[in-house]
């Protein structure tokens, strides 16, 4: 490290409360035990034969709905039938843009508070726990899948993996700003352990497995 860099770093540290930073790091370094090897994480192949079946079973078990469909036209039919009263629908999926209804502006995240149905796509879903992955590159506002009253997610069957280990293999070192696994509708059981769907986020989650 050059002297210049070092003094820049010192300056940065002092701006961030450098005194404590150095003190903490010194104490940690002094007190941490001798280095222990990082274990290799196995892939743990999953016992189930059909990831599609497992995914559907698990997601239904945690309050979600699953449809296996052949194409986007089927998705449109189902969504139109299931959400007849929706006043504002926002689809981030090009193929389903005809379902958009009401204001389609994304500029201010707060303006999304009246979205009844949001339709997003997911490049990765996990059979063992019914979770779908999405990232900010696929959702124009991070808050969209949380603030909507109902959430629909389109997943290509090919993008279904068995376990979280495989999921992170696929995510690799993707450089997202924000990424999230979503498994079912928002829920709480804080009142006497009674499960209630729709805590702060979507009251329902529908996943379409295409292909």
């Amino acid at each position: 490290m050059s002297a210049n860099n070092k003094s820049m770093n010192d300056l940065n540290s002092s701006l961030r409360g450098g005194g404590s930073r150095e003190r903490i790091l010194t104490a940690v370094k002094k007190n941490q035990p001798e280095l222990m090897t990082l274990p290799v994480v196995k892939n743990f192949p999953q016992g189930f034969s059909s990831p599609v079946e497992k995914f559907s079973e698990v997601l239904k078990g945690i309050g979600g709905s699953v449809y296996e469909v052949a194409n986007y036209t089927e998705v449109l039919h189902i969504l139109t039938a299931n959400f007849p009263g929706a006043n504002r629908i926002m689809s981030t999926v090009q193929e389903l843009s005809s379902i958009n209804k009401g204001d389609t502006g994304y500029e201010d995240p707060h303006s999304l508070e009246d979205v009844d149905l949001a339709v997003i796509s997911s490049p990765l879903a996990v059979a063992e726990n019914g979770a779908v992955w999405t990232m900010d590159s696929l959702v124009p506002q991070r808050v969209l899948p949380f603030i909507c009253q109902h959430l629909a997610v389109i997943v290509n069957k090919e993008n279904l993996v068995s376990s979280m280990h495989e999921a992170y293999d696929k995510i690799g070192n993707a450089d997202y700003g924000f990424g999230v696994f979503i498994a079912g509708p928002s829920k709480t059981a804080d009142i006497e352990q009674s499960l209630v769907l729709g805590a702060h986020g979507p009251k329902s989650m529908t996943v379409f497995l295409i292909g």
Partner: peptide, 15 residues
């Protein structure tokens, strides 16, 4: 006893 929490959010960069 849930297979995963509903949301596992990965915050990397500010929006």
């Amino acid at each position: 006893g849930q297979p995963i929490t509903t949301y596992s959010s990965h915050f990397k960069k500010p929006r």
